[in-house]
Amino acid sequence: MIAPSAYLLLSAILFGIGVVGVVTRKNVLIILMSVELMLNGVNVAFVAAGSYLGDPAGGVFAFMVMTVAAAEAAVGLALLIALYRLKETIDITELKVLKW
């Protein structure tokens, strides 16, 4: 038997790595991929908790998260394309018009 805390730890690790990717990387594509990573980590936690607690909500939630992640990835990439057309760059440190 695997302790449920193991799954939660794994989920946290995946999430943390995803966060590192978002905070650290300059390439927008990689940031978006890191966001997918974070969402995955969360899904692991949902499924694990649902299965250990016997609550179908865990599964349903995970399903919703996947859906939303897909939608968000699509829109995000579309934005990226539009932005690339405008600014010719995918470096987010160049995209800092909205400051002070």
Partner: peptide
């Protein structure tokens, strides 16, 4: 904040 260890309930089927 742990959960009871047990066989996996069929949650994601």
């Amino acid at each position: 904040f742990s959960m009871p260890i047990g066989p996996a309930a069929e949650v994601g089927t």
